[in-house]
């Protein structure tokens, strides 16, 4: 046929294959088991923990999560790709999400997105070469009273004007929450360099 065939018989080697899930991450995943009747139900929390820990959900991580939950790897693949918040490729240290739904669009989200693209030098779905930022859009973030709104990791920013973008990007605390955090879904921070905190430098 004129177009290539994707080989699914061979495993995919992740570009920068992160290490196996640490025992701490697995323990964190297992800590959700008691909340549900089935282990399978811990899948969404497990994937959140993995993504926070590794920065993304690699093929290898999917397979390992499947093992921890004792479910088929195909069903982890199924779930990971259904939900837009899980990503299967590495992203920058911070992800900027620009809301693209109706209110934000009416209030200028299109121009705002262009401003981010210009200042970051990347397109939608891309990461800056230094790995600092990834840029994405999402449907309604339920911050329509503050349209146009933007999320930088966990932190929301409302009524952002294109002119605000340079200052916003320069602010090292632009992803730092003002409220006390709960560590329920937090990554397990080990010695390993590949684990990385998000949502600000809360360890000081």
């Amino acid at each position: 046929m004129a177009w290539p065939t994707i080989d699914r018989q061979s495993p995919v080697t992740d570009s920068d294959a992160p290490p196996l899930l640490s025992d701490e991450v697995k323990a964190k995943i297992r800590s959700f088991f008691e909340r549900y009747e089935t282990r399978r139900a811990a899948l969404l929390p497990a994937l959140h923990v993995v993504q926070e820990s590794l920065g993304y959900i690699s093929w290898r991580a999917m397979d390992e999560v499947a093992t921890v939950l004792d479910i088929p790897a195909s069903e982890v693949f199924d779930v990971v790709t259904f939900y837009t918040h899980y990503w299967t490729k590495p992203r920058g240290k911070k992800t900027i999400v620009v809301c693209r739904s109706i209110t934000c669009e009416l209030m200028g989200a299109g121009v705002l997105l262009e401003a981010f693209k210009r200042h970051l030098g990347v397109g939608e779905g891309e990461t800056t070469p230094d790995g600092a930022y990834s840029l994405a859009t999402e449907e309604c973030l339920a911050q329509c009273d503050h349209a146009p709104c933007v999320l930088i990791n966990e932190k929301k920013h409302g009524r952002v004007k294109p002119d605000d973008v340079p200052a916003l990007l320069a602010d090292p605390d632009n992803d730092k929450l003002e409220v006390p955090r709960s560590d329920l879904y937090d990554p397990v921070l080990g010695e390993d360099a590949t684990t990385r905190p998000r949502g600000g430098e809360r360890k000081g």
Partner: peptide, 12 residues
């Protein structure tokens, strides 16, 4: 999931 801040408030 996009309710990050809210999650921390509600969990607390």
């Amino acid at each position: 999931v996009e309710f990050h801040e809210l999650f921390h408030i509600l969990q607390r």
